[in-house]
């Protein structure tokens, strides 16, 4: 399995499913018992007011291992990563980190993710960056490029194939 498959593979079976189950169990164990569902995270959540993401619910469901509902929900993808939930939790918990973990699990379980994310991943694997230098327009609508502005060319990774290889391996590990 390559990391590109990570974002496009079908529902996992057998070994792969076993691995996913292990990750879900790991997440459950990693979340401390301390969330008392006070809802403070949700009360200040920048996404809640727009899209009904409820970080306290994410905490409860992940802790009890019921993350199927979350994996299939679109709400987890609406977290704007403002980090206020983590900042303000009276129990020093980090709903935003759990949301990231759940999204990562959605990816390894082969859930459909927005093409914006997979495109970004492809771009990083191919060039080292999420996008290449763009032609933009100035306020008068004249086209402008990096070079045209006198900026030096970007100096990205010299051996992109090597970086790609290492990234694929790293993605299979838990570097956290």
């Amino acid at each position: 399995m390559s990391i590109v498959d990570l974002t496009s593979m079908a529902e996992p079976e057998g070994e792969a499913q076993k691995k996913v189950n292990e990750i879900i169990k790991g997440l459950k164990e990693d979340i401390p018992n301390d969330c008392y569902q006070c809802g403070k995270c949700t009360s200040g959540c920048e996404a809640f007011i727009l899209t009904e993401l409820e970080p306290h619910k994410v905490m409860a469901l992940s802790k009890s291992g019921f993350i199927d509902e979350l994996l299939n929900s679109s709400e987890i993808w609406t977290c704007v990563t403002c980090l206020k939930c983590k900042e303000r939790c009276p129990q020093d918990l980090a709903p935003v980190d759990v949301i990231f973990a759940v999204k990562n699990i959605a990816v390894v379980s082969g859930k459909q993710i927005d093409s914006g994310y997979s495109n970004m991943l492809q771009a990083v694997l191919g060039t080292g960056f999420i996008q290449s230098p763009k032609e933009v327009v100035d306020r008068e609508n004249n086209a402008v490029t990096r070079e045209g502005l006198g900026l030096t060319p970007m100096k990205g990774p010299e051996e992109i194939a090597k970086l790609q290889q290492v990234l694929m391996k790293a993605a299979m590990e838990t570097l956290r």
Binding site: I3, I113, V124, I130, L163, L167
Partner: peptide, 27 residues
């Protein structure tokens, strides 16, 4: 000073795989 070789910090890839973020930042 500009140097050769930096890439993405990895933060935009957090949604997909947290290990990628870790590796790219360390790199």
């Amino acid at each position: 000073v500009d140097i050769e070789g930096p890439a993405c910090c990895g933060a935009p890839l957090r949604h997909i795989n947290l290990s990628l973020t870790m590796y790219l930042s360390a790199r």
